[in-house]
Design a binder for these strands. Structure first.
Lengths: 218, 218, 218, 218
DNA sequence: AATGAATGAGAGTTCATTCAT
DNA sequence: GATGAATGAACTCTCATTCAT
């Protein structure tokens, strides 16, 4: 019994080890240069052993994608649950920033989740829970009248597009002469959100954001 | 002479044929699974023949990237030159829409220009002329006081991020349950631009855009 | 255990089989025309299998070179140790003859050791132990006053040149109308050695050697 | 007529140009890496053009071999004819030295003549005229009683072996820690010749040579 | 559970050579 | 006489995967 347990644990550990090593190689060498052999050598097991944990290269890759999606989801959920009382629009902005930051801090995860091209897999699309978090946040903004009465789905998708755009570009084109990251990200997010807000005078006055500073003295 | 001319023409035609077939295979199979042999078989020539036109796989790929960038650039330039008298903000919006449309109508070009991962080649980054067009358009909006006094570089980059985001997502995730494309694209662009505009009452009243229709009777 | 042992043995056998087949092909076709495929076909394994034993063609070739050098060395050592009490000059002559004989009886080994051109690999030169044996023998001849006080290094190199010359020519130009091998080899060796000997009357009289027989009754 | 002549001349010139370029590439890149394409590129003609002068790679290579043999022969003949009156033994020594020097000064020629392995060509062996020169010289030494009555053929072959040995080793193993070249070559030649000489007292006394100095006071 | 041997397929690339023009 | 296009065969080497042990 003890033995069985130990065995199960070992198996789980090895699986994790494989995934970690695979991720590193995928990111370091690029998808094209990844090979099951290299992976086996890295973890110091035989090539065959990998097949005891993953059916084939494809499944291994998919596991990494899933793992990365989960981490992104968890990061967003932490955000959502962390500040339940707050102004939902502020929370949303924080959420969007958190999304971008997650991508930039975990480019490997972001690549797996959105950028690496999978060999065309035609399985029926399931909207990922991560997107639900976004939709939920937008929904609250509308419900609590911080946003104009916009279409929640369209807005969510548009917001996603914007933050995906900046995240992926910063990751994939690191040599482009970008302006300061913070400033750029803020501008993208503020631009995307501000137009959606219900404008009240006081809000207008207290709006913060680098690119609006000059506005105050118009 | 005639013979020489015919030969040259034939050579050019074959080159084009190769490029076209290669493009298809690259897009269908991805860089990794593209093979010179597959290409050869497709065009019904021997593998060696390809090497009479392109030094190697890498160079062939690069040619496609360049070609695609050029087409994008030309599409944008047509836009810029086409309506020189117009309201620059409207032109900019049209330009952004044109960018997205180009990507959606020529997904293969867009993939080559921005999405397909090249084996890391560290040549010094040259900002592509296409980006200059954008910067120029934003500059005119600021100069002619249609935009607030924003930083042109930051704004250009932020706008690029937004439209790249929607373009790439629509191309790469075709099975996601997107709302109507037109509506979505408009929302992304309007969101991104509207926050930058100098607001005057009449402008506010005449603002068009699907997502703002309801707004009018608030 | 038994199984493991059997496996190891099989692996060793296969390695040997590969080396033997490779040696034959290298000698028959030359380095340039040797091919891993030909080899694979010959041993009736897939091309990939060879790579389980040798990293690449180069390493395979080097293994053969080493093997051949070792065999030569061992042959010479047997000679050296076999007759420790004898007249060192006689031993040296025997050694030289043994060298040539080894080459002629194992032309493949000799080719690998000295004649087949390796793709220029600039590793720092290590004088092969086989040459040390020669130097040692010459040294003894000088020490024990059988040779005049010649420079040991120069003499060793000159002797090597002579015997390498005859060995390589006989191997590489088998269709040349050579005189009787034995006679020719003896003449080369006697010529090379005799000039070095300290001459005493009785030695002069007892000198043997095909080419000197007639001399006695002049 | 003039035109025909010019054409013939041009053809000959081109042939020479091809041979020169080919020789360079063969020596620089090794036989294996030589390619008709490289050659064509170097002489700035099309690959096909080479085939107007040489049936194939093999024939081209053979032409180079022949050319090199001829040069060697001519060098030796110059020697032979240059000093017709001299002591034939001295002339022979000079000839042997000239042979070695030719090889060292024209390693490319020597390689082609003797070292580069031709894809086994089984044509009936023709003793090269260069060897006849040697035989002739040895013959004269015997006739004029400078040599003991040795077998001319055997002696010639043995001498050839010795000088080929030193020449080829010096060319093919340039990183071996050889002693001073001059000294080494002299020792090889002197060793090989001295044993053949008829010894007279005065000759004994006037003999020069590093390794014989001590001999004088025996 | 893990291994190591083995393979068949296929990769990119180069080559000597031919031949219509 | 010279060319440029084309090819078929060959090359070394790597790969994902299988399977007896």
């Amino acid at each position: 019994m003890n033995a069985i347990l130990r065995r199960k644990q070992h198996k789980a550990e090895l699986r994790t080890q494989i995934l970690e090593a695979a991720r590193e190689i995928f990111v370091r060498d690029g998808y094209e240069s990844f090979s099951m052999r290299k992976l086996a050598q890295r973890i110091e097991y035989s090539p065959g052993s990998i097949y005891l944990h993953f059916k084939n290269k494809e499944e291994l890759f998919e596991s990494l994608v899933e793992e990365s999606f989960d981490r992104l989801l968890r990061a967003l959920n932490r955000l959502k649950n962390g500040h339940p009382q707050q102004d939902p629009a502020a929370t949303l902005k924080k959420g969007l920033r958190a999304y971008v930051d997650f991508g930039l801090r975990n480019p490997s995860d972001y690549r797996f989740a959105f950028l690496l091209r999978r060999p065309l897999h035609r399985r029926p699309y399931k909207v990922h829970p991560a997107f639900d978090v976004l939709r939920y946040m937008v929904g609250r903004c509308v419900e609590e009248k911080h946003f104009r009465t916009v279409d929640i789905e369209t807005t969510s998708q548009a917001l996603w597009a914007a933050i995906h755009g900046i995240t992926s570009l910063l990751i994939q084109r690191p040599t482009f002469p970008w302006v300061a990251r913070r400033k750029l990200i803020d501008q993208v997010i503020n631009n995307a959100i501000d137009g959606l807000m219900v404008r009240t005078d006081q809000e207008e006055e207290t709006r913060a954001g680098v690119q609006h500073v000059q506005l105050s003295h118009l």
